[in-house]
């Protein structure tokens, strides 16, 4: 044992002796009484925190929190799935808008192609008379955004696709103007009026169903057969909607 070891050992022995001095009897009794009081008191004792539910069901708070968190996750997934392709103007359109916004900012995203894809999806909604006015407005916004992101070289296929979609949009807008004016659900609007939607099975007949009111279904539609994707095609263009 060298000098420093001996020094440390002497300190450790002193520390140990000092720490093992027995407590004063009064202090010991005080501690015991405090402990007994805590054990006797229903407030002091450990309690299972529980929630009271109807029919006498008591649920532990931890279980309730877990169930609540699980329900929130499941609810979020359901809302996400339902809103994935929700048409413009629908209550869940925010989910679709959020998804599109995220896709646009992802690394490597082709913004022009994506905007075209979103525009085509909205045109498809308009074509199917799903919140047509809001869908057309949305398609217009997306096509304008696509135009800003398109390359300078106008010979690229994306430009061809954009022109085709523009033509399709013009057709939809013309048709919309020719139809009886009905209040539409615009994106961000509150709950729809019972007469505002044409796809609600109400009094306003669908212009393109079997009971189509127009004598000329193709009037004012796409200028070229190829651009509309063919008669009877539900898609407004030949481009990939892909959603």
């Amino acid at each position: 044992m060298n000098g420093s070891d001996a020094t440390l050992a002497s300190y450790l022995i002193a520390w140990r002796e000092d720490s093992l001095r027995p407590p004063l009897p009064q202090a010991r009794e005080r501690a015991r009484n405090a402990m007994r009081a805590a054990a006797a008191s229903p407030v002091g004792r450990y309690r299972v925190r529980a929630l009271s539910l109807p029919f006498g069901v008591r649920l532990r708070r931890a279980h309730a929190l877990f169930a609540g968190a699980a329900a929130a996750v499941i609810g979020g997934v359901i809302v996400g799935l339902l809103g994935w392709n929700a048409p413009a103007g629908s209550p869940l359109y925010g989910v679709r808008a959020a998804r599109q916004s995220i896709q646009l900012v992802l690394p490597g995203a082709e913004r022009a192609a994506l905007h075209l894809q979103y525009a085509e999806a909205s045109l498809l909604d308009a074509h199917n008379d799903t919140n047509a006015i809001a869908s057309i407005a949305n398609a217009r916004t997306e096509l304008d955004a696509a135009q800003r992101d398109l390359p300078a070289d106008r010979s690229t296929p994306l430009w061809t696709r954009w022109e085709r979609d523009e033509s399709e949009l013009a057709t939809e807008e013309t048709e919309q103007e020719q139809e009886p004016r009905a209040p539409a659900i615009l994106p961000g609007s509150a709950s729809p009026s019972p007469h505002s939607s044409r796809d609600d099975g109400g009094a306003i007949a669908s212009p393109r169903g079997s009971d189509h009111a127009s004598p000329e279904p193709n009037e004012g539609r796409s200028p070229s057969p190829g651009a509309s994707g063919g008669e009877g095609s539900p898609r407004p263009s030949g481009g990939p909607v892909g959603e």
Binding site: W15, R16, D18, S19, L20, R21, P22, P23, L24, A27, R30, A31, R32, A34, M35, A38, A39, G44, R45, Y46
Partner: peptide
């Protein structure tokens, strides 16, 4: 008590901590 006294060195503090420890033990048994 020895643990508290070894750490604190202060007699009254060690007693307080010992008492708090047993009361906390009751609450978290």
């Amino acid at each position: 008590h020895a643990y508290a006294l070894a750490r604190l060195g202060d007699w009254s503090s060690a007693e307080d901590v010992t008492q708090e420890t047993f009361v906390a033990a009751v609450r978290s048994i």
